[in-house]
């Protein structure tokens, strides 16, 4: 059960008409290390992870959906007023033929999202290590997206999302520490 707040986690502003970026942002929408993969991975793993860290996967998985709609908003803003000629010039001609201006879960190269991007191994350490790696890969993707644009408004939203990946990575690292630690046992030195 979720309660939906009808606003974005962080305001999304796009400062210039640069359809090229819409194509690249798809990497974080329907790519292997994107927000959809992240949300589905964590919310699915949470059933079999030890009780102590279920809440963490629940919270972060939910936040990933908030990031997903930020990316969706960026892509929508960049494409909604584009002409077919502009879409073609930005390398989105094939996309238009298949989807018009509808959003679709595919990566920047046009490969549709697949469940093989995510794993649920059942081993808590294996799953959390995958989650840490996913956060670092998403952080790197945001860096390369920031590199690809001089639009400071778009960069601002992407920098926020990059910082969130850093925080999530630390939380997963802490989850590993919690699971391997014996801090509940009284130590006598």
């Amino acid at each position: 059960m979720w309660i939906y707040e009808k606003k974005l986690q962080y305001p999304v502003r796009v400062g210039k008409c640069d359809i090229r970026m819409a194509k690249y942002l798809a990497e974080q929408y329907g790519g292997a290390d994107g927000e959809l993969s992240a949300a589905l991975r964590y919310l699915n793993q949470r059933y079999t992870i030890p009780d102590k860290v279920i809440g963490l996967l629940n919270d972060i998985g939910t936040e990933e959906f908030a990031h997903l709609e930020m990316i969706a908003t960026m892509i929508y803003k960049l494409t909604k007023d584009a002409t077919v000629e502009e879409l073609e010039a930005a390398g989105m001609g094939a996309y238009y033929v298949n989807h018009d201006k509808a959003l679709y879960y595919q990566n920047a190269g046009g490969v549709p999202w697949t469940a093989t991007y995510i794993q649920a191994k059942g081993d808590p350490i294996a799953d959390l290590y995958e989650d840490i790696a996913a956060e670092e890969k998403a952080r790197a993707t945001y860096q390369w997206l920031i590199d690809m644009t001089d639009d400071v408004d778009l960069q601002d939203g992407l920098k926020f999302l990059r910082e969130r990946e850093i925080i999530h990575s630390l939380r997963f690292r802490e989850a590993v520490e919690i699971l391997k630690d014996d801090r509940e046992h009284k130590k006598i030195f």
Partner: peptide, 20 residues
């Protein structure tokens, strides 16, 4: 905190675009 994406200065990591 909202602007930085984190509540803690110790975890804030700036990143600048390589464009241009």
């Amino acid at each position: 905190a909202l602007r930085h994406g984190t509540l803690w200065p110790a975890l804030y990591s700036p990143y600048e675009s390589k464009w241009g």
